[in-house]
Write a protein that binds this DNA or RNA. Sequence first.
DNA 1: ACGTTCGGTCTCATTTCGAGACTGAACGTT
DNA 2: AACGTTCAGTCTCGAAATGAGACCGAACGT
Lengths: 156, 156
Amino acid sequence: MRYEELADEPCSITRPLVIFGDRWTLLILKYSFAGIRRFNAFQNALGISRSRLLDRLDRLVEHDILTKQPAAVGAYEEYRLTPKGHDIYPILMAIRDWGDTYMAADGPPVHYLHRECPNAGSTGEAHVRLECDSCGNELTARDITPTPGPGLRVKH
Amino acid sequence: MRYEELADEPCSITRPLVIFGDRWTLLILKYSFAGIRRFNAFQNALGISRSRLLDRLDRLVEHDILTKQPAAVGAYEEYRLTPKGHDIYPILMAIRDWGDTYMAADGPPVHYLHRECPNAGSTGEAHVRLECDSCGNELTARDITPTPGPGLRVKH
DNA sequence: ACGTTCGGTCTCATTTCGAGACTGAACGTT
DNA sequence: AACGTTCAGTCTCGAAATGAGACCGAACGT
């Protein structure tokens, strides 16, 4: 099976992965969140080949995760996150939480601080929490029962 | 740059992605969470080629995300999630939240219900929330300031 | 006129991949 | 014992994806 055929799967884990589940795309987005906007800047930061980078940026633009616009000043293009792209941040933070737990023997390389935390001198850090939207308890995989939803019954 | 060289980056987003950031590994783990344990079962569920599947399973076992053991009954092997692997679940749920929001025009294909939710007839659903561990407020990328941590200062 | 920077294109050797046949071990049935 | 089945795992081969880096034209400053 070709990987792209998975795009039709009725699964909200699979479908996003067809867009950004390859080896480079989430890293490109990581740099987008870090403020990188220009083609050459991505290429220098990542070491990805130019044609590969262009493929990936084009795909992200096509899916409205990034926009491509001429810069306000200067003669170059800018790739910037859309609101849809902005909402990918929790995915990166979930990966980071796992990485800090299991792959950071020397401690976290980067702290992600809550800039204007009202508590205790702004020492709060951002973490992802899986919780129930009704009772608010923290959940793990064992607490969850998958159940068919409306998107599963639709024929295409 | 070869992709695997990124494993040395002092970044807790990059390092996990070198393990499971390719086109198949997170999908394999999705089926692990769904209860799939056997080689042929993964292959049938995913349509991945056998040699590719073996590569990916071997890598997950090598990184202690899955274990490989003979089944209690029957003459076959079982690949099962370790606690370390179990903690990947929030990453999949973060992807799913985004997929349900932006790629599920017909509604979510699957509901992930809180099985024993104390509220209102167990209608609670699992969602990922990015929050401050100090004040508890929900955060977005704009609220966060990345700051160097201990893992960045270590020489290798 | 000239050099620089920019995003983008092109070519080519290497690597990765999908498809599917094949292997050998374990087991059940007759 | 002979046979078929199921199992994970291996092998080969053609196709696709990738990395490296040269190359291009447009825009800009001097």
